[in-house]
C-alpha cells in the first residue's frame, strides 16, 4: 500500500470540469512538483489535498485513511503570500504552533513550558537562517525571509505532507536559488513528502524527485470547459545522481552571480 493513494479524483464547478480521472500513488519522502498551464487545476488539486475543497468524485487516502475535509496539523502549507501572521514577531509566529497544542483555552504558554518551546523555535529559526530576525515583525522582513518564516512554521508541526503553492513565485531569482537550497536540505533532513505547484519548469526539475504535468488531453472546441485536466506526464527525476545535482547547483550559483552583477535590474 502506498503512502498516498489518489483514486479517480474529479473536480468540477458547475459545468466546468477542472481535472478528471486523476489516479496516482505517492510514496513517503517523494517530492512531487506539479506544472501546467494556468487554469489546469494545479491549485485546485492542492486545495483538495489541503482539505479546503471537496472533490466532486473520487478520494484521496493517506496511509489507508481518507483525507479529512478541513485543514489540520497533518498537512503543512506554504502559500505564495499571507502565510505569516502580521501581528506576531518571527519567534511568536513559530511559537504559536506549540501554544495551540499546549494551551487549548488561552493559546499561550508560560514559564518552563514556554522556555522549552522557545528553545526549540530558536533552533528551527537557526536552521532556516532567521535567527537574526527573531524579534522582527513580518512587515520588516523581505519577501524571501517571509517565505523562510512560512516554511519554518510549516516544519515545526512535523507534518506528514507539505503542500507548497508557488511558494517562490514572488521572489527575486537570487533569493529563489537560496530558497531552493534550503528546501532541498530540509526535505532530505526531515524526509518530508512534498507537493509543490510551480510555474517554473526549471525549478520543477531541479527540486522534485518526481514531476507531474497537468494538461487537458481531450478538448471540445465548442465547450472548452467540458473536459478537465489529467496528469499527462509523470516523470521520475533522479535527484541522487550527482551529475544532475551538481548541474543544478551550478545553475543556482550562476543565477546568483548574474543577480549580484546587475542588482538594479534584478531589484525590479
Amino acid at each position: 500500500m502506498s503512502f498516498i493513494e489518489i483514486k479517480n479524483l474529479w473536480q468540477r464547478f458547475g459545468e466546468q470540469v477542472v481535472f478528471e480521472q486523476l489516479n496516482a500513488r505517492v510514496e513517503r519522502g517523494e517530492f512531487v512538483t506539479i506544472v501546467g498551464a494556468s487554469g489546469c487545476g494545479k491549485t485546485s488539486f492542492l486545495n483538495v489535498l489541503l482539505g479546503t475543497q471537496r472533490p466532486s468524485r473520487g478520494r484521496v487516502l493517506v496511509a489507508g485513511q481518507p483525507l479529512r475535509d478541513e485543514p489540520d496539523a497533518e498537512r503543512g502549507v506554504v502559500f505564495q503570500r499571507y502565510s505569516v501572521f502580521p501581528h506576531l514577531t518571527v519567534v511568536q509566529n513559530v511559537l504559536i504552533a506549540r501554544e495551540f497544542e499546549g494551551s487549548p483555552l488561552l493559546g499561550r504558554l508560560f514559564g518552563a513550558r514556554r522556555r522549552r518551546a522557545l528553545a526549540e523555535v530558536a533552533e528551527l529559526l537557526q536552521a532556516v537562517g532567521l535567527a537574526e530576525a527573531a524579534n522582527k515583525y513580518p512587515c520588516e522582513l523581505s519577501g524571501g525571509m517571509q517565505q523562510r518564516l512560512a516554511i519554518a512554521k510549516a516544519l515545526i508541526k512535523k507534518p506528514k505532507i507539505l503542500l507548497l503553492d508557488e511558494p517562490f513565485g514572488a521572489l527575486d531569482p537570487g533569493i529563489r536559488a537560496d530558497m531552493h537550497a534550503l528546501l532541498s536540505a530540509l526535505w532530505r533532513e526531515h524526509r518530508l513528502t512534498i507537493f509543490m505547484v510551480t510555474h517554473d519548469l526549471k525549478e520543477a526539475f531541479q527540486l522534485g524527485s518526481r514531476l507531474w504535468v497537468f494538461d487537458k488531453i481531450r478538448r471540445d472546441r465548442h465547450s472548452p470547459e467540458a473536459y478537465g485536466a489529467h496528469i499527462t506526464y509523470d516523470i521520475p527525476i533522479d535527484r541522487n545522481s550527482n551529475a544532475l545535482r551538481r548541474g543544478a547547483q551550478q545553475t543556482a550559483v550562476a543565477q546568483r552571480r548574474k543577480y549580484e552583477a546587475v542588482p538594479t535590474a534584478a531589484g525590479r
Binding site: 502549507v77 502559500f79 501572521f85 495551540f100 512560512a150
Partner: peptide
C-alpha cells in the same frame, strides 16, 4: 486573508484559538 486562517489550522488551531490568537 483566508490563507492565514488555513495556515493557523495547519498549525493545529481550534476555532476558538483561531479567533483569540489570530
Amino acid at each position: 486573508p483566508a490563507e492565514q486562517k488555513i495556515k493557523a489550522q495547519t498549525l493545529g488551531a481550534s476555532s476558538w484559538q483561531l479567533i483569540v490568537r489570530i
